[in-house]
Computed example of a mutant assay.
Amino acid sequence: MKISLSPLFLMIVLLPSFLASAKDDFDFFYFVQQWPGSYCDTRRSCCYPLTGKPAADFGIHGLWPNYKDGSWPSNCDPDSSYDPDKVDDLMESMRENWPTLACPSSDGTTFWTHEWEKHGTCAESILDQHGYFEAALNLKKQANLLQALTDAGIGPDGGFYNINQIKAAVQRAVGFSPGIECNVDESRNSQLYQIYLCVDTSGTKFIDCPVYPRSKCAKRIEFPTF
């Protein structure tokens, strides 16, 4: 006797195994750093953390698992909540290097919760919660973007710089070509917003990017002050 299974039944039965295979099944990480001046220099503006104005330096946005086809997994384990106690020893460095600029002002917990639950849980068998945040902090030490740019005569002075020169400066310093994401200021000028570097699945080594993020940038982009 042939048994016909409904699509709904199959979805219910197969969904747990699909989620299990999606989790930790990725090709590389994007390590993303953000220029605070560009975050704030928009129509929506920004709010400083409760600890005060961050340093005029690139801050971590996140460490994001990705696939080579340009897609990415997200929210892979709804049962794995962000626990600040697990990163208590990293908290000072996170406040300094991974600050939030979202409004209203906060202590960063909402930002870090989002990054762990959306992105970190998709690499949880490789990096536990402490390992995930520690890996991002270590990568920032390896990629001092502001130093790389200023060494090349590219500074956050409100001037406009050739985007290829920005990429070349980062590549000289880090060894790999970055992806550049731009946003626009209130006058609709294209400005340096985020810099993407690709990292292997261990979260420790920079690699050539299998695919770059999509972003519309002008040939010359502003590097705003902060």
Rank of each mutant, 00 (worst) to 15 (best):
C122H: 00
S74I: 01
L192Y: 01
V13F: 13
G52L: 07
K86W: 05
I163C: 06
R188K: 13
C122G: 07
W98L: 04
S17E: 09
T201Q: 05
W64C: 01
P36C: 08
H119V: 04
Y30N: 09
E134N: 14
W35R: 08
E181A: 14
D85P: 04
P16L: 10
D79W: 12
W64M: 00
Y48E: 09
K167F: 06
L197Y: 03
P99H: 10
G108E: 06
E186M: 10
R44H: 12
D185Q: 06
V170G: 08
I180V: 15
N183F: 07
L63Y: 03
D151R: 13
G203M: 07
T113A: 10
W72K: 02
C198M: 00
L19A: 14
S125I: 03
L10H: 04
Y30R: 00
P54I: 03
A136M: 06
S215L: 05
Q129Y: 08
C47P: 03
P84C: 07
L14V: 08
E92M: 10
G153Y: 10
L101H: 07
L50D: 11
S71M: 02
R188I: 08
S93N: 15
C198T: 08
L127C: 00
E222T: 06
K53L: 10
S6V: 10
P213E: 02
K23G: 00
S125R: 12
W35A: 02
K118V: 07
S38E: 07
A55K: 13
H114T: 03
Y39I: 11
G59L: 08
R220H: 13
E134L: 08
P224S: 10
G155Q: 15
L63R: 00
G158P: 02
Q34T: 15
N144T: 11
L10G: 04
D83A: 12
D88A: 14
L192A: 01
N138Q: 13
D128Q: 06
L127R: 09
E92H: 11
K118H: 06
G37V: 02
Q194A: 09
D24E: 00
N189H: 15
T150G: 12
E186N: 13
N97F: 11
I3N: 12
P54M: 06
L63F: 01
L192K: 02
T113S: 13
G175T: 08
C198S: 03
Y193H: 14
C182P: 04
D185Y: 07
D85M: 12
P65L: 01
D157P: 08
P49F: 02
T109C: 00
G179Y: 01
Y212Q: 08
H119M: 05
D88E: 15
P36K: 04
S93M: 12
E92G: 10
E115V: 04
Y82M: 07
V87S: 09
T109H: 11
E117N: 07
G153M: 10
Q147T: 13
I166Q: 08
L145V: 13
T204V: 10
K2R: 15
A123C: 14
D151P: 09
S190R: 09
T110N: 09
E186F: 04
A20R: 12
A135Q: 04
T204W: 08
N162K: 14
T113R: 15
P99V: 01
C198V: 01
G62V: 00
T150Y: 07
P54A: 10
H114F: 05
N75E: 11
E222W: 07
S80N: 14
T110Y: 09
